[in-house]
Design a protein around this nucleic acid. Sequence first.
DNA 1: AGTTGGACCTGACTGC
DNA 2: TGCAGTCAGGTCCAAC
Length: 305
Amino acid sequence: MPNGDTTMPELPESETIRRQLEAAVVGARITGVTVNLPRTVRVHSRPDEFIAVVKGRRIERIDRRGKALIFTLPGPKTPVTLIIRLGMSGVLLVRERGAPRDDYDHVVFALDDGRELRFLDVRQLGEAAAWPTGDWSQIPDLAKYGPEPLGEELTLEYLTDLLSRRSTRLKAVLMDQESIAGIGNIYGDEICFEARVNPERPANSLTRPERERLLAAIPAVLRKAIEHCGTSREDETYTDIYGNLGEFQNMLAVYGREGEPCRVCGTPIKRSVWQNRSLHYCPKCQPRRRMTPKKKATRASAAKK
DNA sequence: AGTTGGACCTGACTGC
DNA sequence: TGCAGTCAGGTCCAAC
């Protein structure tokens, strides 16, 4: 159960929630809104009037952009776009009205069919923002995002241009929502492993073959995680809208596996800390520096002996 | 402008 | 037992 637990929603977790919400609440009307923690809601740039803007509207569709969930609420005049960012510990739950209150239920949307959509968030880093437009390009929160990693905009050309302009660590670029939308700390590490590139490498140092591997690894890792309904960790538990756990945590290659053997070569996984974030990689599969031809030959001859 | 580190926030955990 | 310190990380912001 999500009470007291926390979350790490990145794109696969958000997409899992989106698919469930699409089946569960699209078509329902929001008959009432209870805001228990005002800092969680926002209209435009103001923290007030949220209830007035959202109440009475029907949920027409639910989309996702990066990690954000986007509810389209049409109206007689202008549609409203409701954006829910789960932050790091946010959970959306669908409950029957009258079910016991959940801890940290900062915003509760009452639906006309007798259910409630509850937005829980222990660490209060999530947010629900309402915008009085249906045009995403008018919404700064959405307009700033980089291309969707599962879309056609993420091409080798885009990735090459992006990486060539950045001297910071590859991991930082992958996690930069304005560069590519939806990747966080867990999948950043997993993608780098899948591509066999060290996450601490300067982004502009990647070779073309490495960029090609990265381009393939990004959707491959994210799609696989979506298939397994996202990642729930023992102590940092993400759940879907019914309180169920994901399954991808059992398939993680490097994240959270410090000291455990690499699933490919058996070398202990290394963890380092950078910018208050942990970073995991296999030192053998993802060498920090590309080996020079001479060093490669030396190592190869040493391996023969 | 790009990069970096701190702050926000709370619960779980560790060590004294 | 209690308390201080640390860690987790999505996102924003200040500083270099």
